[in-house]
């Protein structure tokens, strides 16, 4: 789904269009699953695990509370809301197990809800910083540093556009990316065939291409970076 459709669906959902809201939730089920799994650090199944239901409810809540003018990508905001709701859930679970009391639920007063929302927006700054640190760590797994990317960035705009396109193609190719994971090196010939770029260009811009591919390969992990680069 491209950004335009997401924005349109969001706008409609916020205006009260139930179908648009349902579509939005339905389309982002895998996103919710990824966020919840990364928080719980175990495999989960729809219909079996409460955490996934909480994630879906939190996503729906994010649709309600999202403010586009805050300049935070919607998915980043939704990720924060889901993580926050899950954290609440885990706290309550621990309390319930230790005291034997029932779950009080997420019913908040209006004031508390407002301050909680404000907290989520403030948290986004930290979330951005964490994403950038995560990106730097992901780069280092392939032996790439941000400092060298400064020198390796193509000077010409056309080259950059071509390489961004190639990185997107590469990110969508599971087989190519698996090869990359195993060997930590781009299969130049295969990439050349897939992207139409000459092997020489690919070899010359290997690290730059890889740095962009990492961003596009993990849209749920590098939400801010994905939303920032013009594709």
């Amino acid at each position: 789904m491209d950004g335009g459709t997401l924005e349109q669906l969001l706008a409609k959902a916020k205006e009260g269009d139930v179908d648009a809201r349902n579509t939005l939730v339905e389309v982002h089920r895998s996103f919710v699953l990824n966020v919840v799994v990364s928080s719980c650090r175990r495999s989960l199944q729809w219909g079996r695990d409460d955490e996934l239901s909480i994630g879906l409810i939190a996503f729906d809540e994010a649709v309600t509370r999202y403010e586009a003018e805050r300049n935070v990508p919607f998915l980043a905001f939704a990720r924060l809301v889901i993580k926050s709701r899950l954290a609440n859930y885990f706290r309550q679970e621990v309390r319930r197990l230790s005291s034997g009391a029932g779950v009080s639920g997420n019913n908040l007063t209006d004031d508390t809800a407002a301050s909680w929302t404000e907290f989520i927006w403030d948290r986004s700054a930290q979330d951005r910083a964490e994403e950038i640190q995560d990106y730097e760590a992901a780069l280092s797994e392939y032996g790439i540093s941000l400092d060298e990317l400064v020198c390796l960035s193509p000077k010409h705009r056309d080259s950059r556009i071509a390489l961004i396109g190639a990185a997107q193609t590469l990110a969508a190719e599971n087989e190519l990316f698996q090869h990359l994971g195993r060997k930590a090196r781009l299969p130049v010939k295969k990439v050349s065939i897939k992207t139409g770029l000459s092997p020489k260009v690919i070899e010359k811009n290997r690290k730059y291409l890889l740095a962009l591919t990492i961003i596009f390969r993990h849209p749920d992990r590098f939400i801010y970076l994905n939303s920032y680069i013009k594709k």
């Binding site: 941000l146 990317l149 400064v150 390796l152 960035s153 556009i161 740095a211 962009l212 013009k230």
Partner: peptide
């Protein structure tokens, strides 16, 4: 170091 929207580090 910044990453510009057109892909320059």
């Amino acid at each position: 170091i910044v990453l510009t929207s057109d892909g320059t580090y």
